[in-house]
């Protein structure tokens, strides 16, 4: 009784209508433009504040000296590379199950962003490892599983570009992304399951962070800034993916004219 009235309620119907609108590529295209611009500027502001704070104003660390300042980019990049991967896998599943094209487009265009974050996490980790551990690289569980993540990203991109029909690439990449999800818990728990040089997580939901507040604030802000920047980039790239796929429709042609400056 309650259930059937719920499914017929105007609340539910409006929710469904809103969902369908949002997952329509054209609607998303128009709405994400102002949204992306706002998020982008906010990201820039937060990134500048947090990184200047981390570089110049956060106090020096007792044991590691100034090399610890790499944490303000290393950890956000590592966070993002894993969060974006999880998002790609979730979007792939949504695309496969509900056949929502927009989910595939978002997933595809998130790949280069996630790959660049995995690359940045690995490079800054190597640079940080040298003065801290005395080695650029060791084949330990955390570092190796992060390298696997980068290769997964490269594999996803290669799959998208290998297929003649982009729809086949979408599906193939979604399946690879779902299989590769196995790597995420390995990255997360690698520092606990195996003996590793890598220090355990700085942030845990269950404990107070071991960082002083003067380091913690710019650290959290940097994570937020990277997140927002990634969202803004993903929106921009996805809009272009929509235009590319719908390039034969009239609205996409008009939009390409507008972007080309001859309206």
């Amino acid at each position: 009784m309650w259930q059937s009235s719920f499914w017929q309620s105007s609340f539910w119907k409006n929710l469904v209508r809103w969902f369908h609108k949002w997952t329509s590529p054209k609607w998303f295209y128009n709405l994400s433009r102002p949204l992306g611009a706002w998020i982008g500027w906010l990201a820039l502001l937060i990134l500048v504040v947090s990184l200047v704070w981390g570089l110049a104003f956060a106090p020096i660390e007792r044991l590691q000296g100034n090399s610890y300042r790499i944490i303000f980019i290393h950890v956000p990049a590592a966070f993002l590379s894993q969060a974006i991967y999880a998002a790609i896998a979730a979007l792939g599943l949504i695309g496969l199950v509900w056949r929502i094209k927009l989910a595939f487009y978002l997933a595809k265009q998130s790949v280069p962003i996630g790959a660049s974050m995995a690359f940045l996490a690995l490079v800054t980790g190597a640079i940080w490892g040298k003065p801290t551990w005395g080695a650029w690289w060791v084949w330990d569980a955390r570092l190796t599983s992060m390298l696997v993540l980068l290769f997964l990203y490269l594999g996803l991109w290669a799959l998208h570009n290998a297929m003649e029909r982009p729809e086949s690439g979408d599906r193939a990449a979604a399946i690879l992304a779902l299989v590769g999800v196995v790597n995420l818990p390995i990255i997360k728990f690698s520092v606990e399951w195996w003996n590793t040089l890598h220090q355990p997580a700085t942030l845990k939901f269950t404990e107070a962070p071991p960082m002083h507040i003067s380091m913690l604030i710019p650290f959290l802000l940097a994570i937020l800034g990277f997140y927002l920047a990634a969202v803004a980039w993903a929106l921009k790239r996805t809009r272009l993916e929509i235009l590319q796929r719908e390039r034969r429709t009239q609205w996409a042609r008009d939009e390409l004219d507008r972007l080309g400056g001859n309206v």
């Binding site: 570089l55 090399s67 790499i70 290393h74 940045l120 490079v123 800054t124 640079i127």
Partner: peptide
């Protein structure tokens, strides 16, 4: 003593 490391890392970022 870590200028080279820190600035290289931020350069990559």
């Amino acid at each position: 003593r870590h200028g080279l490391y820190v600035w290289t890392a931020y350069g990559f970022a």
